[in-house]
Nucleic acid binder design. Structure first.
Length: 517
RNA sequence: GGCGCAUUGGUGUAGUUGGUUAACACGCUGCCCUCUCAAGGCAGAGAUCACGGGUUCGAGUCCCGUAUGCGCUACCA
């Protein structure tokens, strides 16, 4: 039987990184098994579901490269079907009408309310299934319904027994029926509820393996009861450990802000491949062998050596993926909101930098182009006449960049004459040595005499000039770097000369701007 | 409150059927390289494998308890 898995987010916000990881694992499993990866938008909560959210989910999946098969399903479109199934269950005596007046719940306090109610029931010896309507006669039930009295439909959980399933990740799971209350299938306004909808849709879509967050682990028992009531085949389940915030707390938008949104990473200049790679390594690891950061990116050959590094190409990710190797404990996503250098997980940042400097230029260039274009730094010549120059420049500066954003910020001076001078750089490399104000323009004169103008020839000229002037080459080098790029750090100065060219180098060396800034 | 799940250095993880000094990556420190910063190379700090019992010749690996965290316990999803 071919594997059919699905990603079923509720469109009540941006795509959460935890959800993105669920999608990734589902997708990887489908690729690995030659199965189908389906997308279902669980928009039954009309109050909170939004179209923008659906759009952002689709965008997020697209960005990560997780294409889904077949038509996307909107759960709300199946509401009639869900209602029909609930009613059928009622007709078969597997569900019943509950005429208890609906209790309004304030969304903000439900958690507490639920706990309080449970506590009260426990002390009063309340049986969750002692609903007075559970055993109401068919006639009376029909009569009351016919008279227009509102009712909810609840599943009738058998008195004796227990549910059991083998979770691929969490192992054997058991729950006594007495622990499960007669869950509501249909609200009194006829609105089908989550557990019902999920099960019906999963059956409808032919889902063979349900891979989702661990927060649904205990819900699974209820869902199995529904599968059984419907006489449907129960799929396999694999629950994923959660991704938590530092301190082991839940990662939520309310508290942690945009850090939890996948789009944040896209907008911050992450590469889809890098973030995907990072996400894959949370809660899962290739195999019991050594990690080594020596994998060759972009190399899609199946490694002969079974050992896989943490840097894995998509091919390697797929080939090595297995549900059995997902582990059970929740992971912490590390970040520090007060530290701009660590605004997100260190390892994610490292991995992104690693991708930027080791991936093929062919793949990187279009992304740099998009980044420059978004910042009005792009010139069409970079794609034809100056194509070679562009590739060479990107290759030179990528070495110390962490995100795509760096190309337009730190890398600005390479693509525009309008760039800023950093105060610390100016103070340290220029103003500290006033003599440079004369030396640098003089150096410009020397450089202009060079032909051809290359890293080698400019280095020779600069060193000779330093010797003649009786100053250290480093003084001129660091001063030049600040004049040419506005920064104190960057690639080898002579490479920068070569890339910027004779004229621009000379012009910038003579600029008075930093001296008066 | 009840039920369930988890617990290896700061973080992500490895640790095959229990067997010498618990491994890798990120981060951190120092050194080398050097025109700066990265990268790279080398070295290092950091874990009584949550805690307490037990089984065993021997436990991170098996059992029990405790603690902590997380989840579920809604006419939310």
């Amino acid at each position: 039987m071919t594997v059919r898995v699905r990603f079923a987010p509720s469109p009540t916000g941006y795509l959460h990184i935890g959800a993105a990881r669920s999608a990734l694992f589902n997708w990887l499993y489908a690729q690995k098994t030659g199965g189908k990866f389906l997308l279902r938008i669980e928009d039954t909560d009309l109050q909170r579901s939004t179209e923008e959210s659906t759009k952002s989910i689709i965008e997020g999946l697209e960005w990560l490269g997780l294409a889904f098969d077949e038509e996307m399903v909107f759960q709300s479109a199946n509401a009639d079907k869900h209602r029909a199934v609930a009613n059928k269950l009622g007709a078969e005596g597997k569900a019943y009408r509950d005429f208890t007046p609906r209790r309004e719940r304030d969304d903000a306090t439900v958690k507490q309310g639920v706990a309080d109610r449970a506590r009260a029931h426990a002390s009063e010896g309340f049986d969750s299934r002692s609903n007075p309507y559970r055993d109401l006669s068919r006639e009376e039930s029909d009569q009351r319904a016919a008279s227009g009295e509102p009712f909810a439909v609840r599943l009738k959980i058998p008195r004796e027994g227990k549910t059991h399933f083998e979770d691929i990740v969490y192992g054997s799971q058991e729950r006594d029926y007495s622990e499960i209350e007669d869950l509501v299938l249909l609200r009194s306004d006829g609105h089908p509820l989550y557990n019902l909808s999920v099960v019906i849709d999963d059956i409808e879509m032919g889902i063979t393996d349900v891979i989702r967050g661990q927060d649904h682990l205990t819900n699974t028992h209820k869902q199995i009861l529904i599968y059984e009531a419907l006489g449907a085949r129960v799929p396999r389940f694999a629950h994923l450990p959660l991704i938590l915030a530092p301190g082991g707390k839940k990662l939520s938008k309310r508290i942690h802000g945009e850090i939890v949104s996948l789009t944040t990473y896209r907008d911050a200049g992450f590469l889809p491949a890098a973030f995907r790679n990072f996400l894959a390594l949370i809660g899962w690891a290739p195999s019991g062998v050594q990690f080594a950061a020596d994998s060759t990116l972009g190399n899609d050959e199946i490694p002969v050596d079974p050992r896989v590094g943490e840097l894995m190409s998509l091919r390697e990710l797929i080939d090595n993926f297995s549900l059995e190797r997902i582990h059970r404990n929740n992971a912490i996503f590390n970040f520090d909101a007060n530290n701009p250098k660590r605004w997100t997980d260190d390892k994610a940042l490292w991995m992104n930098a690693e991708y930027i400097r080791t991936m093929s230029l062919e793949e990187l260039l279009p992304m740099v182009k998009a980044e420059l274009r978004a910042n009005k730094l792009w010139r069409e010549e970079y794609e034809d006449d100056e194509g070679e120059w562009f590739a060479k420049t990107v290759d030179l500066i990528r070495q110390r960049f962490h995100t795509l954003k760096d190309f337009s910020s730190q890398g600005r001076a390479y693509f525009s004459d309008d760039f800023d001078f950093e105060d610390t750089a100016v103070n340290k490399n220029l103003k500290k040595q006033p003599l440079l104000k004369q030396l640098l323009p003089a150096l410009a004169d020397r450089l202009e005499e060079i032909d051809p103008f290359t890293a080698e020839t400019s280095e020779a000229a600069l060193r000779l000039f330093a010797e003649e002037q009786g100053v250290k080459a480093g003084l001129l080098i660091n001063g030049s770097r600040t004049m040419l790029t506005g920064q104190a750090v960057g690639p080898s100065m002579f490479e920068v000369f070569a890339v910027l060219g004779k004229d621009r180098s000379a012009t910038r060396l003579r600029s008075g701007v930093p001296w008066f800034a």
